[in-house]
Design a protein around this nucleic acid. Structure first.
Lengths: 204, 204
DNA sequence: TTATTATGACCGACCGGTCGGTATTATATT
DNA sequence: AATATAATACCGACCGGTCGGTCATAATAA
């Protein structure tokens, strides 16, 4: 009886369109009609799949962060050395920025900006709880703990150290976004890794 | 003939009001009427002193970053040891966040978010050229160079290292803003300083 | 009175979200 | 097979409301 459409697939199409536009114009400047046009549907159709602009945004964020996380998990599972694992996390994150494309970086920044700007706790919760942050922190913490056990790293406050590492990573990307000419991301990432690992490595 | 008013003083009053509201509501959600009300003037009056909302924003940013910079400069001039100087920069920046009040942190975040969101190059230029970033980087770079000369730090790519340090600082603050409960800023800053300095210090 | 400054009513552009109507297609009926 | 029916998908005109910026008018000082 009904017109058969793969609702899920179409929802993803719209989500993809939304992410594209978010990355290009920024969340605030993105109008529903922009997303609709990009997705090749009418404005009203958007509301068949999402309740509101905010729901589109949070969906995009969740999707994005899950993708990112599984990429990292996948890579980590193939490596056992804590030192190498740390290196992997940095490399993958930065590579995601540099290689997979500027669009990737831009949308990540959009999420940050939106989280920062939004005093509305809802969005902040989505970002913190489902988001890259707490998961990344836990992942890194686990690596650090294992490294300490193995005697590769010296004893430390793993939680704070994990925060510092994530912070450094984010911060460097932030600067890069703000002024790509001024920052050589490759160079900086090497320095970041070296000086950081130098700082936590156990010495004879 | 003219009504006697200190134009400059009134402009600052409006700017202060604007910064207050920006910090409280975020730039996008701040309406001209909010600023006017806070400043205790009529909406139209705002336009006697600023051409547009964007001009208010960029003025606020410039003012803010100059204040911040001179605070740091002032403190640095009283200390000669490169190691201590680095410590000072971290301490002052973090203290500004923690002590001087949440408002401070919030408005800084607002500037970031605005810079990130705005693909409009004008705002990005204001932030990068006049902004905290390039100056901070230069300041830190100078300290690092001096430290290397003095033999306190090992040789390194000072520019990249400076970026990493700023990045770490920013990133940690970012995390703190996003989820204050999850981050103990004091603890983290100690770890940041220790592990970083440990990483660049020259060894016997 | 005249020059200057302050003001808020007003304007017009904009936008998120709704809703009535149309198109499409699967099934039921003949 | 042809037709009718029902269910769903799709659409864009429209509505209610918002907000940056303007401008005619008022207030005030000289």
């Amino acid at each position: 009886m009904p017109k058969i459409v793969d609702k899920e697939a179409k929802k993803m199409e719209i989500l993809n369109a939304a992410m594209q536009v978010f990355a290009h114009k920024g969340v605030v400047k993105t109008k529903i009609i922009d997303i609709a046009t990009t997705a090749g549907v009418g404005k009203g159709t958007i509301y068949e799949y999402f309740r509101s602009k905010e729901e589109i945004f949070t969906s995009a964020y969740t999707y994005f962060s899950k993708t990112m996380e599984s990429m990292v998990q996948e890579a980590l599972s193939k490596e056992d050395d804590p030192l190498k694992q740390l290196e992997l996390i940095l490399t993958i994150s930065l590579d995601a920025f540099v290689h997979i494309g500027e669009e990737f970086a831009d949308i990540m920044m959009e999420f940050w900006a939106e989280g920062i700007r939004n005093k509305n706790q809802d969005i902040l919760d989505v970002i913190n709880l489902k988001g890259v942050y707490s998961n990344y922190r836990k992942m890194i913490q686990k690596i650090l703990k294992k490294g300490i056990e193995k005697g590769v790293f010296k004893p430390m406050d793993t939680k704070s150290t994990a925060s510092v590492l994530i912070g450094a990573l984010d911060g460097v990307m932030l600067q890069w976004i703000m002024d790509r000419k001024a920052i050589n991301l490759r160079k900086v990432s090497v320095v970041l890794l070296d000086s950081f690992i130098e700082g936590i490595r156990k010495r004879e």
